[in-house]
Amino acid sequence: MTRRGSAFLVFVLALTIAFVANLSLGASIIAPNDIRAAFFQFDADNYDHFIVVYQRLPRVLIAVFTGSVMACGGAVLQGLMRNPLASPTLLGVNAGATLFVVGGVIFFGISSASQGLVALIGGAVGFAICLVVARMSGMDGNPKGLSLILSGAVVSMLLIGIANAFLLSSPELRNEFLGWMSGNINHVYFDRLELLWPVGVIGMGVLLVLSRALSLIALGSEKASSAGVNVTLVSRLAVGAVVLSCSAAVAICGPVGFVGLVVPHIVRPLVGANQTAVIPGCILVGATVCLIADMIARMAFAPFVLHTGLMMDMVGGVVFAIIVRRYYLTPGLRRSL
């Protein structure tokens, strides 16, 4: 078996183990046999079956969805912008979606269903503001430059700051949204997943179809164009797919940051940098990382439950620093993406 084939086998195994472990582990430990029985011989009076099907499974599916779309989005943005720090979190997508949902609920009392649509618009607006600010800096032409990332960080802070200000003005919603805003993978949001999963699945499907063209764009737009890629169309479709699918994830459980930043850097050394392998790899590993983060968040500080978004922020912050050092601050070791 090739190295890439072996890597994918490991990814699938890891995802399967993390999936079952998340269903099994928690305040009460449920044996794999009982998990199987919960799916195939569901007994409404069995409390373990109830926990598996109505609490842990929804949570697991939200983690899988969020991890997959965020990691996929990070891989595509890093390739398109040829910047190792690009990710939905650092390009204003998550913050834009967050602000629009909070603002929509506070000022217009929008329903849970409408929050999804508003998040999609917010994610797109956040990303657009980030591009405009980068262009205003006059350094947007430098693909390796930090201008876009810095603009994204500033815009994200601004948008999240405004969202927090809105919440401060509305004490009754503050508690409800405080958890969601820190990336809360929770079974209570399953109705949102039922509504929004097609957005993420279609988005990832579009990215898979475009993956070969995206690999060529990572070689440079002139090279891609001369090889037959319509660079403008492919880039717009890919960014649209990323923004919409990641915004859908934010609408479900709030902004779970850094999955998009970290996972592509785990996947590339194992399967190569060809997006035809990186994108499926990120779908599998992104889901696994989110499941593991969720498991740690639930169990590491028991009886307290940490939000998954906070867990990822703590890991992601360290990885962010490592990437900056590796790609930007060590000239001799500077790698290309």
Binding site: G79, R82, S215, L219, G220, K223, S226, R268
Partner: peptide
Amino acid sequence: AYLPQENHCPDYI
């Protein structure tokens, strides 16, 4: 076909 002046390849390709 075109060979640009500067060529860039991501790591791991």
